[in-house]
């Protein structure tokens, strides 16, 4: 893996767009970050003028427009920091560290990339599609949300993708239920050789997908979202436990530096 040229940048806000319920796409201008970004990388943003907030806030790089030197993050309002971000206006500067972490890798012999995303877990995948778009690989997406107001990025992604299956928990659009059920059915129907899974989403979903991929023996990479105090390997706060140490003395890796992308069978998820 090549080392990131991680640094602190001052990125300019270009645009903020409300793309789904409480969900926003923030477009930033910073040419170096835009050209360096690989799918799975994240940035750590200093929230400006926000009383009491200490840490930066990490977000996956959602997409890039290299020619213009732009990149996007996709975020949902969940607390103080994300609430502050929706008040940012074009022309403002944000203090950003990036690119951070490792990235998704497509195996040589992969003929179909199967993406499984829950909620905001869709964030890293538009860049993934752009990066890995090749005519010899098929891309299938399983995307689950709570209700139809949460669905986003479908149009952008449809250009690059063979098939998108999506589910809402309330059945307001797409299939009703969990995306993992749909994915389970799919895996039952297809020949698994040459298939590789790429996963991001809430922990309960990750646990289900992990169990399935292990029982099917299918290769899967997951991007994890542990709490992070620094994002660049200094605090050791973002520990992920290795599966091989499930019994006995634990062994940990750092989500921010060794990850956020891990082989799914190699790590354990917290309760």
């Amino acid at each position: 893996m090549t080392k990131n040229i991680t640094n602190i940048y001052r990125a300019t806000v270009v645009n903020l767009e409300n793309v789904a319920l409480d969900t926003f796409k923030l477009t930033l201008h910073e040419p170096t970050l835009s050209t360096q970004a690989k799918p799975g990388h994240f940035v750590n943003i200093k929230i400006p003028d926000c009383d009491g907030i200490l840490w930066r806030r990490p977000f996956s790089i959602h997409n890039t427009e290299k020619q213009q030197g732009h990149f996007d993050i996709l975020f949902k309002i969940v607390g103080k920091g994300t609430n502050n971000l929706i008040g940012r206006t074009a022309g403002e500067k944000l203090d950003i560290i990036g690119p951070l972490g490792n990235s998704f890798t497509l195996d040589e012999n992969t003929s179909e990339a199967i993406i499984v995303a829950g909620g905001l877990g869709i964030a890293p995948f538009p860049l993934f599609l752009k990066h890995f778009e090749r005519h010899d690989i098929k891309i299938t997406i399983f995307y689950g949300v709570k209700t139809k107001e949460n669905i986003c990025c479908i149009k952008d992604m449809a250009e690059h993708v063979a098939t998108i299956f999506y589910t809402t928990e309330d059945g307001s659009e797409g299939d009703k239920g969990y995306v993992t059920d749909l994915m389970h059915n799919y895996l039952d129907r297809i020949d698994l050789t040459g298939r590789q899974l790429f996963v991001c989403g809430p922990t309960p979903m990750l646990k289900t997908v992990r169990a399935l991929t292990i029982s099917y023996g299918i290769r899967a990479q997951v991007s994890v979202e542990n709490l992070m105090a620094c994002g660049f390997g200094a605090c050791m706060g973002c520990a992920v436990r290795l599966a091989r140490s499930a019994e006995g003395e634990p062994e940990y890796r750092l989500a921010c530096k060794d990850g956020p992308v891990f082989n799914m069978d190699e790590i354990l998820f917290n309760d």
């Binding site: 009491g52 907030i53 200490l54 840490w55 542990n226 709490l227 992070m228 105090a229 605090c235 050791m236 706060g237 973002c238 520990a239 992920v240 436990r241 140490s245 003395e249 634990p250 062994e251 940990y252 917290n270």
Partner: peptide, 23 residues
């Protein structure tokens, strides 16, 4: 030393708690 089990950090008002455990 492997360090403590996660979660090891929490953000608090103008501060943070850690229990890294000297890995």
């Amino acid at each position: 030393r492997p360090g403590n089990p996660p979660p090891r950090i929490a953000e608090t008002s103008s501060g943070m708690l850690n229990s890294i455990g000297l890995p």
